[in-house]
Design a protein around this nucleic acid. Structure first.
Lengths: 220, 220
DNA sequence: CATGGCCTGTGCCATTGTGAACAGATCCCT
DNA sequence: AGGGATCTGTTCACAATGGCACAGGCCATG
């Protein structure tokens, strides 16, 4: 999270290491890889946003993470995963650095800075996923939705009295929170009625999150 | 997961690096660190088993992970966590290697093997926690309990037709699964009635898990 | 302009889960 | 032996959630 991390440039390290690097551009909603694909590379987000999701046997979808610039994903292949256990798709136009699995392990040895960056990423993602798990274990879907909205708002911009979540369907929200759309709808209207959030029917303009929404999460 | 990982000896690397290492022995149920403590070191399990849990505001407990030999924990401090966000306690007599935070980062640079091992650990734990999260998002508490039992059985011994879960209270199971004890009890008896598991009132002798329990998890 | 696709708003009911209480069994300690 | 602590077995009323169906608005497309 320090400045050294922020100024890291994975591209430069791959260049200097003389590796076959590959940069791919994705459009909004374009698939990056799908559940079941062969897992042969680690990806690094240079620009944009990426959604990681998983499909259940019954066709339900769950969103496991929303990632942004300087995040890695697809690292499961380093732990012996032959196939991708989930899907990744761009949520905004994105440019992604693709690093072949065997080259990644080599670079992790040769480039201390990339190694550091990668470890930092893994540790903090671990923390984040653990928090998501705890959230599921402890909280009701109402609080989980409130938390998801607050996190999404921070994801957009910082330090504004009233933050805005770009544009996201209730369907996607339900997949992130782990509940149904009708339930999300119910709570969204409740939050709106209580003044915690503001938006109009069409969510294209985004959702305005008021800091008072925090009370939902904090309340016992 | 390969042999190189199995044969890794963190102790040796810390010795050769000339670091102030510390080995601590814990008894069964003894606390290793508590939620809110200052987070200044990473731990490495040499022998035994460790439970990671979190307390909610309301006093409820959730078990986030059960770890064994060659697992790291407490690594959150590497991502800037000043305080422990959960508690760790020994579930069997354990010996734990304590590595100060700043020394850990140094060793990660100097000792390639430890760096490899640590990265492998982080990646596979990430995968595991992600699966726990997905489990929560998709499955009912009945399936989650079945899955938890199957994982615990593998944790004990491998490749036996009938595996045994050491000894664990229904209370702890409910904390792992994220539900209430009465619910766990209900399903345990159901599983017993259907021949998926076997045990007698006193769980001291452990729970025998039959492979047929898998059908619970697999069934739509 | 008509149609279909996609999204939100809403109501309803069966299912699942919670929380709390109480009984019985076992074990430990005095 | 008695008391207390701990754990499982069981029940019950009530709250939370899931699943589903349908209406209405908006929009792109032909």
């Amino acid at each position: 999270m320090g400045k050294s991390v922020r100024s890291f440039n994975a591209q430069a390290f791959l260049d200097s290491a003389g590796l076959s690097k590959k940069i791919v551009e994705y459009q909004r909603d374009e698939s990056i890889f799908s559940q079941g694909d062969a897992a042969e590379s680690v990806m690094y987000i240079q620009k944009g946003g990426v959604k990681l999701s998983v499909l259940s046997k019954t066709g339900r979808e769950a969103v496991v993470a929303m990632l942004g610039p300087a995040d890695f994903f697809g690292e499961g292949c380093l732990a012996g995963q032959a196939l991708r256990i989930g899907s990744a798709s761009a949520i905004t136009p994105s440019t992604v650095l693709v690093i072949a699995k065997n080259q990644m392990t080599k670079v992790l040895h040769e480039q201390r800075a990339l190694s550091d960056r990668f470890i930092a990423h893994m540790v903090s993602r671990n923390v984040r996923i653990e928090q998501d798990l705890i959230d599921q274990l402890f909280n009701s879907s109402e609080k989980r939705l409130a938390r998801a909205l607050l996190l999404l708002a921070r994801y957009g911009k910082q330090d504004k009295p009233k933050q805005v979540v770009p544009k996201i369907s209730q369907e996607t929200l339900s997949e992130m929170v782990g509940t149904t759309r009708s339930r999300v709808n119910f709570f969204m209207n409740k939050f709106k009625r209580l003044g915690f959030i503001e938006y109009d029917g069409n969510l294209d303009a985004g959702i305005q999150i008021n800091s008072s929404l925090l009370s939902v999460v904090l309340h016992d």
